[in-house]
Amino acid sequence: MKIYRCEVCGFEYDESQGWPDEGIAPGTKWEDIPEDWCCPDCGAAKADFVMVEVSPA
């Protein structure tokens, strides 16, 4: 399970948690999220996210 961070605002998408608010079930892989999905905070497109390593910090 990976975490992806929005380059624009810093919102993080955690695959293990999904995004149930928008019907994205826990465990949903990044690749499986629709291309037209956008950042729940700033509204940036999926393409504006970058992958980050999960860090316990």
Binding site: D21, C38, C39, P40
Partner: peptide, 11 residues
């Protein structure tokens, strides 16, 4: 609220 795609289009 709850409609980020519409807001993005509206921008």
């Amino acid at each position: 609220m709850n409609r980020p795609a519409e807001l993005r289009a509206l921008r």
